[in-house]
Design a protein around this nucleic acid. Structure first.
Length: 619
DNA sequence: GCCGTTTTCGGCCCGACTGTTTTCAGTCG
């Protein structure tokens, strides 16, 4: 899968064109192509082979040809020609926050700066030497240069995006802090954090308060212990940065505009562009303050207090944040928009959402009915001290009970995971007995405990235990742990073969990736999912925010193929149960409803499904 | 460069903050 590689070519070309002051729309179009390739669930090679490249939204004829050229030659002649016109170090200068194409171009053409190290040396030479002559450039001043220097040091500290779970912790801390400030009615994280993306660039928080309180809120934000430095500070927008380099933007919005602000700052950018285009066609204008009808030079505000109102103004049902990626959700929302009436006529009540979706005291109607945390009835992948977990069977069961779960599966590692104290056959048999002993007591209080195992899928697709041993288990999660740098083709065969074992219930973290450092397996996921469908195997969304595997687009493929998803935490201790929420957001990004998720089913339905899978199940 | 229930040509989202400027350009989200 060369998607990331090809996308990089287009990103670089866009940067080069920007530095060469080319047509802005052409630059935007190239970035759009990069994103379309990057996020495509299908391998770009396969799309090219099938001649489907220009069928992907955002990719036109000319880009399709260039992609073909890259796949054939390993380079694109026209892009190489662009690269030859700009020193490569200038592209690095462009990476510095607060430096855009105009500034980088000025520094290069008029200041002779062709690299980051050179730029740094010139600025550090100080004001006496006019910063190596850079301060004399029209449009570049002392303050700007000092800001660049400051951002340079941040650049080395911040490696770009952080994981969802890490951003979530910071976001929660800031939200609760902001809510204690006088005049603040509500504070909600927006941006990619609200959309539940696997990595987060920066944290956007919308604060509902009167603008007259804006400066006080800005002061308070800058004083938070996590705010190591202040980037900007104004009445309606303040940005700070943590010591680790995470940027936090706080916006102050009055109540009558709060819904518009939530919608606006939640994004994604691509989603918002589409929404705004729709608005323009209807003679409307949308910004973070509201929706306005524009006629005869006059503007009349027609929505803004709630998110739902903003969507309704352009003829759409409210769209759950996790779906807002311009992946077809807008068309679906248009179809669902008039549905409320017909549903009411049928006597069906649409799902109502709590305060987090709209303004503080408003309720939002969710027509999409995506799965929610409260739908979860159990967790079917967890470890105990028998392998590498930190707690006993009883402790894990007690925690599950405390959380109101109806069932769990204890799934310790199999024998090949010797570094994780994986169980050999004799120990597994003892462990099954131990689990059943605890289960016998637990069922009295309504908790079903399945004796399971997380069995390794070996490099050739065979499993780490013999079939007759697997048959003794109530629940089998089959996961790849080793040989994760396998080529795509053997990886596909490996996973497809594993689904064919009749004892396997669910495929655990299918790619084995670690966000963001390890890519893991890159199989033809469509083939794996079709195999799972054919063999009646469920696919896991591993909820641990280091994994989130299946990832969102593959979860959606599973939903479309009617393969049940199983959202598991892979808990190794009690606090890991909390990770379920990240699996939920990933499932929602894959458009999953509760019915699509196996562990939202009542225990009886789960048992029935299992019985159909394993006729030898001894209940 | 891409795209089309007004368009195959002529559009392409919108505003806050900052710094360099005397009214605006650049960057960012």
């Amino acid at each position: 899968m060369k998607n990331a590689e090809v996308a990089k070519q287009f990103e670089r070309a866009a940067d080069l064109l920007a530095l060469l002051d080319e047509n802005g729309f052409r630059i935007i179009a190239l970035r759009k192509v990069a994103r379309a390739i990057e996020e495509s669930p299908e391998a770009v090679e396969k799309l090219a082979e099938a001649g489907k490249l220009d069928g992907v939204p955002g990719i036109g004829k000319s880009s399709a040809e260039r992609i073909q050229e890259y796949l054939k030659n390993g380079k694109i002649a026209e892009f190489e020609d662009l690269a030859s016109q700009v020193p490569s170090g200038v592209l690095e200068v462009l990476r510095i926050p607060s430096v855009g194409p105009k500034t980088a171009s000025l520094l290069w053409r008029e200041g002779g700066v062709t690299g980051v190290a050179e730029l740094k040396a010139k600025i550090e030479s100080g004001a006496a030497g006019k910063f190596g002559g850079l301060a004399a450039i029209k449009g570049v001043g002392e303050k700007k240069l000092l800001k660049i220097l400051e951002n340079l040091t941040h650049l080395s500290a911040a490696s770009g995006r952080i994981r969802l779970g890490e951003a979530w912790t910071i976001g929660e801390e800031f939200m609760s802090y902001l809510r204690t400030i006088k005049g603040v009615k509500q504070a909600i994280c927006c941006g990619s954090l609200r959309r539940g993306k696997e990595t987060i660039g920066d944290i956007d928080i919308a604060v509902c308060a009167a603008l007259s309180d804006g400066l006080a809120i800005a002061e308070a934000t800058a004083k938070h212990p996590l705010a190591a430095s202040v980037i900007q500070k104004g009445e309606s927008k303040t940005s700070v940065r943590t010591a680790e380099g995470v940027q936090i933007d706080v916006r102050v919005i009055p109540e009558e505009s709060f819904g518009a602000a939530l919608q606006y700052f939640t994004g994604s950018k691509e989603h918002n562009v589409k929404i705004r285009e729709m608005a323009v066609k209807k003679g409307l204008k949308i910004n973070e303050w509201g929706v306005y009808r524009v006629s005869g030079g006059k503007e009349e505000k027609i929505a803004g207090e709630t998110e739902e109102g903003v969507y309704a103004a352009v003829g759409l049902a409210w769209i759950p944040p996790e779906m807002r990626e311009d992946r077809g959700e807008i068309q679906k929302a248009a179809e669902l928009f008039p549905a409320e009436k017909t549903q009411n006529e049928k006597g069906k009540t649409p799902k109502r959402k709590g305060a987090s979706a709209g303004a503080a005291d408003k309720q939002t109607v969710d027509h999409f009915e995506l799965v929610e945390l409260k739908d979860i009835r159990g967790d079917l992948h967890m470890h105990t001290t028998a392998s590498d977990g930190g707690c006993s069977i009883e402790e894990m069961a007690a925690e599950a009970k405390r959380r109101g779960y109806e069932y769990i599966a204890i799934t310790d590692h199999s024998k090949s995971q010797f570094q994780a104290n994986g169980l050999k056959a004799d120990r597994l048999i003892e462990h099954i007995q131990a689990i059943h002993a605890v289960a016998k007591e637990a069922i009295k209080s309504g908790l079903l405990i399945l004796a399971g195992s997380e069995v390794d899928i070996l490099a050739d697709g065979s499993l780490d235990y013999e079939d007759d041993l697997l048959a003794k288990l109530d629940w089998v999660v089959a996961s790849p742990h080793a040989a994760l740098s396998q080529e795509a083709e053997p990886a596909t065969e490996r996973l497809v073969r594993a689904t064919a074992n009749p004892h396997v219930c669910v495929m655990g973290h299918p790619t084995g990736r670690i966000v963001p450092s390890r890519r893991g397996l890159e199989p033809d996921m469509a083939k794996v999912i079709f195999a799972a469908a054919r063999n009646g195997v469920a696919m896991e969304i591993n909820a641990n925010y280091h994994r989130l595997d299946l990832r969102d687009v593959h979860a959606r493929m599973a939903v479309e193929a009617k393969v049940p998803l199983c959202i598991d935490t892979d808990a190794h201790g009690l606090s890991d149960f909390d990770q379920m929420r990240f699996g939920i957001t990933t499932a929602r990004r894959g458009w999953a409803t509760a019915a699509d998720v196996l562990n939202t089913w009542p225990a009886e339905k789960l048992k029935k499904w299992l019985k159909e899978r394993k006729s030898a199940a001894g209940w």
